[in-house]
Design a binder for these strands. Structure first.
Lengths: 302, 302
DNA sequence: GTAACTTACGCTTATCGTAACCATA
DNA sequence: TATGGTTACGATAAGCGTAAGTTAC
């Protein structure tokens, strides 16, 4: 295989017309260029340069190689410029997965901001439960995962950025006796019936059960809702009360009300943006995570 | 500028899927590949490889560079294959110049043979006097010159290949007293009148004058012909005799005859194929010169 | 005589391989 | 425990520059 470095020397001679000027252009001595081309002549098995007056001239073989060299270095320059664009987040794609309630409330404004800042980025979003999102992340099929967790995170080689702590609120039918209070102690609702959350909705079920446990009673479940929206419906229908995370309460039925729980007793889930170390320094991922942090901040304030 | 050698390492990892196999493919140790890519990561300012299970995976930046690397090395391979074709004479062009009488008799069969052997070669022919042909050769505007010379040749940095010695013959009107002889001694024609050759026709004029001088008489010129064909006409018209080179006698008028001169007295011109050293080893030029030698051989025999 | 290219030669520097180390399945 | 990747380090060889040699104007 012909050595590109040597081709570059030849190409410089072709464009400048002399060994001396080629050396100047490339920052070498004439000797270096002369030796490069001599080596290239051995490699290619052709005479590439011939004396012409006091200078040199390219042979047909030399012209042919110089022509190709030009194309090769153009290609190389294009690779560099595309890489710059990729590094700047002006090019390429960003694949994101989030759990359902974040995908509805947190992610859309974040992606809007991301798109405003990096219009050239091809952003795709899918909805996945946390474990699946992490698996996809590890397999390189997505670049950023927005997940909910309860335990400590990290130590698994992934990069976690905390977004917000999503506090559970109690959801009551309008006119319920507890609706008069600004905050509700879970123990005061010990006699109520409850809407249970489906097992597949992240870790909400385990989360709420732990809260009942801390409140000192075992709840009576009358029905199971497999999504957050039907859960509100069951509450409105008077079948029972529900504990739902704030992120799932972006839209609240007019015939139900929500109240915060006493802080010490309130269950919560932590929301993180996760990525791989190799991507964590790219502009695309950094901008995306920053946008998520931003959106989370505004969500908490609101 | 990104180092192509390092890009090659990355591309090998991209195609094989592992550092180890890439090393095997390129004939290096794993360590070398790892170091190449580490260096490329510094050059490019991007993470290109990330751990994936027990092996590695390319990042988007890595994929981008690998993609470009593929194109670059394809281009390089194409350059090599075109160069091979050029070296084999299956590609490219061959520009040839010859003096007029060779261009009529010697060159056409040679070029026919050249075309048969190297059909891919783009051959062009122009007619030039020897000095001009040599000047064009030196300036790189032609590749092979077919010239006539009288003095010794060489020592000027060009490569000379002798083709033939073109002997002058005496041209007589049919029925002339000297036409009965098989060979003519120039001294026997001392009393005749002569057709002078134009100054621009190579070196024929000087050549013939020297022959008269050797024969011991000064010829009486009655008219000057600026081409060989009219010279035959003047002879046929009975205006005088002429000395013309054999190569110019490919076509002979029916009302004139030609006879060889006594060997010791016969003037002659030497015909050479000339090229530049840088081209003398190329298949195209070697084949062309060989074809000229071949044609000259057949011409002499005939 | 001068300008340009090439050749010779010593030295710097890049880069490879061996071997030890680390991580993963 | 074995496989694949990376890091450390010594050895090798490629490639540069200086300087002398050669050729053309």
């Amino acid at each position: 295989m012909l050595d590109p470095k040597r081709l570059q020397a030849l190409q410089a001679v072709a464009t400048t017309g002399s060994v001396r000027e080629a050396a100047t252009q490339l920052g070498y001595s004439s000797s270096a260029i002369s030796q490069q081309i001599a080596a290239l002549e051995v490699d290619s098995g052709s005479v590439l340069l011939e004396p012409a007056g006091r200078g040199v001239r390219l042979t047909p073989a030399g012209e042919l190689l110089a022509r190709h060299a030009t194309r090769i270095f153009e290609q190389l320059a294009q690779a560099e410029s595309e890489l710059m664009a990729l590094n700047a987040g002006q090019l390429g794609s960003l694949r994101l997965a989030s759990f359902a309630s974040a995908g509805a409330e947190l992610v859309p404004p974040a992606l809007a901001q991301l798109h405003a800042r990096l219009p050239g980025l091809d952003v795709t979003l899918r909805s996945e439960v946390p474990e699946e999102a992490l698996a996809l992340l590890r397999r390189g099929l997505i670049d950023v995962a927005v997940i909910e967790v309860h335990d400590e995170v990290g130590g698994d080689g992934l990069v976690y950025t905390p977004l917000l702590t999503d506090v559970y609120r109690i959801v009551l039918p309008r006119g319920h006796r507890l609706a008069k209070r600004r905050t509700v102690a879970l123990a005061d609702a010990a006699g109520e019936t409850w809407i249970r959350l489906g097992n597949h909705i992240g870790c909400c079920r385990r989360n709420t059960l732990a809260a009942f446990d801390r409140a000192g009673f075992t709840p009576t479940f009358v029905i199971e809702a497999d999504e957050f929206w039907p859960a509100q419906g069951f509450v409105a229908a008077g079948m029972g009360l529900a504990l739902l995370p704030s992120l799932a309460l972006g839209v609240i039925r007019s015939d139900v009300v929500t109240r915060p729980l006493r802080p010490d007793a309130a269950p919560s889930r932590d929301v993180y943006a996760v990525t791989r170390p190799a991507l964590s320094d790219t502009t695309a991922v950094k901008t995306a995570v920053a946008a998520l942090v931003d959106a989370a901040q505004r969500d908490v304030v609101a």
